[in-house]
Simulated assay, not measured.
Amino acid sequence: MSRSTRFLAPILGILALALTGCAAPVTAAHDSTRAGDGTTTYPLTIENCGETVTFDQAPERIVLLESAPATILDGLGVLDRVVSLAGPFPDEYYDSGLAGRIDAIDTLSDRIDAAGHLTISAEVVLAQEPDLVLGLPDGLTRTGLLDGGSNTLVQPVYCPTGVEDTSFDSLYEQIEIYGQIFDRNDEAQELVADLKARVTDVESATANAPERTAAVLYPSAGGGPLYAYGRASMSQPQLEAAGFTNVFDDTPERVFEVSIEELIDRDPDVLILLYQGDDGGVEDEVRTLPGSDALRALTESNVLVQLFNFTEPPSPLSVVGLERIVERFGTGS
């Protein structure tokens, strides 16, 4: 069945007053029917989360188990190779053209557990006869999928071994790897150039910003743990480009549990709250924490609530998320 949810595009007038020349949120699609550039030599071997992955040819049947790579695939002109997808693909992520292309793809499952994780079996995935699976939800293994004939790629920030400090170069490198895999190296370079220009526009606009601090948080629903993002997350380069200091930039981990007392002690000027699915009053989750009324960001309403993929993992959506941050809080100049 095709997705019944309609994916409406955000009309981002992002930075309209503060910046000029910022592009629309998502890339223009290339001709997906043409042959590759002929610049990739197969078999191609890459390293992904410490695992060796070999491609004998460009993948032709993709199962997409997370939403973030969709913008890269579309930018390379290979989204039509996605035979099925699973999980939430929220309306706000895509422009109308990409929304329509995603809407036309068959959906295997949209079942999400209480923690926001996709639940799907290997049998359902392998029934699609993929040669590449993007994403590895709990319950699936690389070995099991490879035994069924499919390679698997995991976003580097989700590698079990962890990652070092993340930057926008992490995004550009990821796009270039996808370009190699699909023999769409020219398109990859075009996409990287566009994203670099947009990031540079923001950095130029915020270059003279006064000292400002921020925290990026993921509040759990129902009074569960509060998580913060450190140097290994994409929030670090986002905040730096937007003219902010991450109050948790002394923490090398990507994401970690933080107490309300620690957050109050660091007292960031602004809060960026991430969520998946329905926001479900994510700001209220923070406001109801004991002592949270001491946070200046809350008392002064300097809060941005946005969908998870606008920050993590590194994808073109992270650049949109950067632009949204500056749209919300200004350039500081």
Rank of each mutant, 00 (worst) to 15 (best):
residue 235 S to Q: 12
residue 43 P to R: 02
residue 186 D to L: 11
residue 118 L to T: 14
residue 87 G to W: 01
residue 81 R to Y: 04
residue 319 V to F: 09
residue 233 S to G: 13
residue 131 D to G: 05
residue 260 I to L: 05
residue 251 T to P: 00
residue 264 I to Y: 03
residue 293 D to T: 02
residue 110 D to E: 14
residue 225 P to N: 12
residue 198 R to W: 09
residue 58 A to Q: 09
residue 47 E to P: 08
residue 136 L to M: 13
residue 98 L to P: 07
residue 280 G to N: 12
residue 147 D to W: 04
residue 146 L to V: 06
residue 173 E to M: 08
residue 315 S to W: 04
residue 143 T to Y: 00
residue 245 T to C: 02
residue 250 D to T: 10
residue 143 T to D: 15
residue 186 D to C: 04
residue 79 L to Y: 10
residue 18 A to Q: 15
residue 12 L to H: 08
residue 70 A to T: 15
residue 267 D to F: 03
residue 93 Y to T: 00
residue 295 L to W: 04
residue 262 E to G: 08
residue 217 L to I: 00
residue 252 P to Y: 06
residue 227 Y to M: 11
residue 40 T to M: 02
residue 26 V to T: 13
residue 32 S to R: 14
residue 107 T to K: 11
residue 172 Y to E: 06
residue 14 I to D: 13
residue 163 V to A: 10
residue 42 Y to K: 00
residue 186 D to V: 14
residue 181 I to R: 01
residue 143 T to E: 15
residue 192 V to S: 03
residue 42 Y to F: 15
residue 177 I to K: 03
residue 328 R to P: 01
residue 318 S to G: 09
residue 122 A to P: 10
residue 191 L to R: 13
residue 329 F to E: 07
residue 63 V to G: 14
residue 149 G to Y: 00
residue 102 I to P: 07
residue 221 A to G: 11
residue 178 Y to K: 07
residue 147 D to V: 07
residue 169 D to F: 00
residue 133 V to D: 03
residue 69 P to L: 06
residue 141 T to A: 08
residue 149 G to N: 04
residue 218 Y to H: 12
residue 111 R to F: 01
residue 117 H to I: 09
residue 324 R to E: 10
residue 102 I to S: 13
residue 266 R to S: 01
residue 117 H to M: 07
residue 74 D to N: 15
residue 291 G to D: 07
residue 140 L to T: 15
residue 33 T to W: 00
residue 189 Q to R: 14
residue 76 L to Y: 05
residue 250 D to Y: 12
residue 224 G to S: 07
residue 133 V to P: 11
residue 240 E to V: 14
residue 310 F to L: 03
residue 295 L to K: 04
residue 76 L to A: 03
residue 215 A to Q: 15
residue 181 I to F: 03
residue 72 I to E: 03
residue 89 F to E: 06
residue 249 D to R: 09
residue 250 D to I: 02
residue 185 N to G: 13
residue 272 I to D: 04
residue 3 R to M: 14
residue 63 V to E: 09
residue 252 P to L: 03
residue 222 G to V: 05
residue 257 E to S: 12
residue 113 D to P: 01
residue 148 G to F: 10
residue 333 S to H: 15
residue 281 G to E: 06
residue 189 Q to G: 14
